[in-house]
Design a binder for these strands. Structure first.
Lengths: 133, 133
DNA sequence: GCAATATATGAACATGCGATCAGACGTTAA
DNA sequence: TTAACGTCTGATCGCATGTTCATATATTGC
């Protein structure tokens, strides 16, 4: 196979190349790097989207909302099988990232999913889970 | 509005009701609870799927594979902008969860995405990111 | 006013996880 | 064989995150 074909990679895409690392296919690396979204975008995707779904309790809350439509905190807590304080903390997080929204009526707070991409991701995930191997 | 309509909820779905929590709409809670996947399924989804995507470095690795097709460790490291040891650790994790697969050729290891749901999730996420608000 | 309820918040604690370093393993060329 | 190389692994450290308890805020009914 083609050994390390040439000299050191000058990681051409961006101006600064970190170190002198030897690459197998520098051209392809450059292409791939150029296709990646900006760092902030990836961070937001990882922490702000997938990170929120990476917890069983939050997942249960969101799936409950996907199924139930609009639920108050205590019903959500019961549905997800968690304490009300933990539920409130979780909903606060989800609210901060615009994944759920609140409607307040007296001392009750009714939560529901924001229309958006997370809903689609949840659907895809559940779809897969249901007729899974 | 309907106050707490009746007595304490006897959370009818499963046999054991944890505590005496008062619910607003016990019937709907039961319906929602019944619709949720089993605990192990939710855990696997959270930890084994979304959890793997909840890290910017792993996301970059996977997006690199989605774009580049099949890449060796050092090219992946360069693409994602991370060290080779960290890359190897990350790939080990992804491999354990059947998200990526290896082809070994001599001392090189070429990684690629397993065909599957993660690929779809990645596509959905990237789709959204690209024409985002 | 007061008490009870529904939710929200803050702080403390434990646990887990990612980054890093040093070294091990298997492979190739000399 | 030795040496260079690509990759993998284990151990450690420090930070982030979820859980819990206690309390705060807000609203309803007495």
């Amino acid at each position: 196979m083609n050994m390390r074909s040439d000299v050191k990679a000058s990681a051409g895409t961006s101006s600064l190349d970190e170190c002198e690392v030897r690459l197998v296919d520098p051209a392809r690396v450059d292409t791939v790097k150029a296709s990646l979204p900006a760092a902030e975008v990836v961070d937001e995707l990882a922490d702000g989207v997938f990170g929120l779904l990476a917890d069983a309790n939050r997942l249960r809350l969101l799936m409950s909302l996907l199924e139930g439509g609009e639920l108050c905190v205590c019903d959500l807590a019961a549905s997800a099988g968690m304490g009300e304080s933990a539920t409130s903390h979780a909903l606060r997080l989800l609210r901060a990232h615009r994944v759920v929204k609140v409607r307040r009526a007296g001392r009750m707070a009714y939560y529901s999913l924001c229309d958006g991409h997370v809903r689609l991701l949840l659907d895809v995930a559940l779809e897969h889970v249901r007729h899974a191997s």
